[in-house]
Design a protein around this nucleic acid. Structure first.
Lengths: 230, 230, 230, 230
DNA sequence: TATGAATGAGCCTTCATTCAT
DNA sequence: AATGAATGAAGGCTCATTCAT
């Protein structure tokens, strides 16, 4: 789980986005929450970053409900008081993370060019899958924790729909564009995402053993074949 | 081909199994837990059944951690004290449910005959999917909650591996038997299960709208085509 | 802990006493309690006896508060329902036991003849101490549990004063009768009882090792010397 | 000869010991308990002190099992949560108190010089008894509750043996040193302690009425006479 | 900005007691 | 007389959140 690999690829809560993006989200989300209007200096940004990363780690390890603020705070090497300086509560932190994933997901969906037959098409698909895999290595736990948190209709309800659902939708469009007949694009998109996500999960959780490249080759082949060799 | 195995509800804890099976489970599982050696009379069996059903309902609604024993007890129209007469704690009840799903899952995997081409093969596949769907309607929440509960390494460790993982394995064998070339059976099994499970989930959670028959037709077609029209 | 050794020496809850004595106690104690007016047949007497003995055992093992009715009921090989057929509650059973000890104690005090110098006096004292020891082996736990139960001013308040206190009083009188000068009889009685009780406790609890005879010889000597060789 | 050791209250948990001693105790005692590694600031020390004192009071009033954490917390004018910031549970607090008594007891035993005949010897003995009495006024309840708590074999087993047993041992040695013939030092030590403890108990619990000085004079005389005027 | 002590609502679990059979 | 399932009040412990420093 290298935060670097990801933080480079998709600007999270550092740089300019934190000051802006986070602010927007908060002002929309709810009034009166901490850290809202505050201009974060570099020190503050660092702390927030540490808390977010700690959140990913702890949510991954224990899930949403079982995660204690104390765990997060310890992982971030800071104090309880500080936590509430940046987030209204545990859910708020989680939502910040979800917002990040959602943004990454959107970017990922957008970055998928037309699906094409042939070796180049396959290579392009593989490259895209690699991006998904990298994203999943970092944010996968949030994706899965999402289901758990989603369960009790939290105050602000579901942020959109299922994060993966959105991805599936995007993929459906690309599938439809291939004009493949005898294949419902919606189903195919869904199936595709399900397959990719579960496969990554199985591999990451150690239930299936495969290294990075094997994983990608296998997925790329199955998907590409499924779409074009029929 | 009838969804009998499942539609008979949850054949596990009534009839003969409860008196026998439940006992076996507990005696093997751990010593000192309540309700263990007790011979359950019909009254007791009913109560246990109510608690198990309530468990499914509440775990479905709130997930494992958020589920309160109080919720379960209310849903079962019984008292706190009674709960602990039958289960050592929340986790114990959950494990009992998991054991049930595992058993159903095993039965489901075993009941899948050879995958065949042609209309009959497709019909058989559809019938099998119907059984899965029925099972999923009842036990799906447990399946999904599993991930959450699994997170904190409970005492008795994972019962086996992922429940769906086992199903995937069984399917892999059937796929291998088809002799389909250019198709890794393990991957295919995994993909198949992932697709079916997620699709059911999307439909049940209302993120995709489809009625029972539509769902089955679509799944059967996609899978059958994927396997044989290549 | 041989119930026989004791049950022979001091008629407890069997024979005629149970039907009479117990009844009297109950009617005085409180109205509306179970088992009150009931004439106990031999079956019932047996059950009550089993419960009382189980009580001694369990109170000894766990003390008053930590003792669960369930423990007692299991030790007596009977059911919860049955327990409440004979006793109003846990405290009621305890009080029945205390009443027994009190009675035994009174008998013990009465049985102590004048304290005399010389070998015969010493032998008589030793014989008396043996009776105390036998009693203590059986009822000691109740004596000690007494302190714990006494702590929360239970409804009917202390039955009299401290059980041992009464014994000490009786002894004081015998000491006074010896006309020993330079010795406050009250203090001496108290000291005597304290010594004997603690010594028995230390031996029984294994903190001091001594067999039955050693224990008696030592106590008899020390006491007799203390009283007469000054 | 001054009752300083005790009258300074409970020298244990204030001053330097708390920061050091408490830590030692905990680190030795068990791992994972709250408040363990924490450096207590003066605020924290005060709170801990209040909880310990409240513990003594409540255990005295209700005994170990009947004491509710709620009682202790109320007596200490603090909250439930705070309690668990300093102690793992009720037993942990009790053990901390026992450790204190044990320490005092050891100091008390050590402070007993050689037993001597004559008026000075008697005065020295009286002074020592005064220290015991002062200690007993403060920690007596813990001593007596000890039996109750000891009953259910708590995790870390008995800290040593009976607290008073240790004191008895120390006294035995002094008695042996007097060279008094016809007197088993072990018995004498035991008898001495039993007498002193019970006498204090009877006086404190109001079963025998005597004021502070009377109590001390009586005890000193009886003991000194018993040892030397034979 | 940061800290960590304090708080108390909430939830799990136990166990004395009742009651239908 | 006996049984054991059912009940619910009571109490232990956790953990999100606040607040004084």
């Amino acid at each position: 789980m290298t935060p670097k690999a990801v933080s480079s690829g998709h600007p999270s809560h550092d740089d300019d986005r934190t000051t802006e993006g986070a602010q927007i989200r908060r002002e929309v989300g709810r009034a009166g929450a901490p850290a809202q209007g505050r201009e974060l200096r570099s020190r503050g940004k660092q702390t927030m970053r540490r808390l977010l990363d700690a959140g990913i780690e702890v949510f991954a390890r224990r899930g949403f409900h079982a995660a204690r603020v104390d765990d997060i705070v310890k992982a971030a090497k800071t104090s309880h008081g500080t936590f509430y300086l940046y987030f209204a509560n545990k859910e708020d932190l989680f939502e910040a993370l979800v917002a990040d994933v959602a943004e990454e997901m959107r970017g990922l969906a957008d970055s998928l060019g037309p699906l094409r037959a042939g070796p180049e098409g396959r290579a392009e698909l593989r490259a895209w899958l690699e991006r998904f895999t990298t994203l999943y290595e970092h944010y996968g736990p949030i994706l899965r924790t999402w289901t758990e948190a989603e369960i009790d209709q939290s105050e602000l309800g579901r942020i959109g729909t299922d994060l993966l659902g959105q991805l599936a939708l995007a993929l459906s469009e690309r599938v439809a564009a291939t004009g493949a007949k005898g294949l419902d694009p919606a189903i195919a998109g869904l199936a595709l995402v399900a397959m990719v996500e579960r496969f990554n999960y199985f591999v990451l959780s150690g239930q299936v053993s495969a290294d990075h490249d094997e994983l990608l080759d296998t997925l790329a082949s199955v998907l590409h074949d499924g779409l074009f060799s029929r």
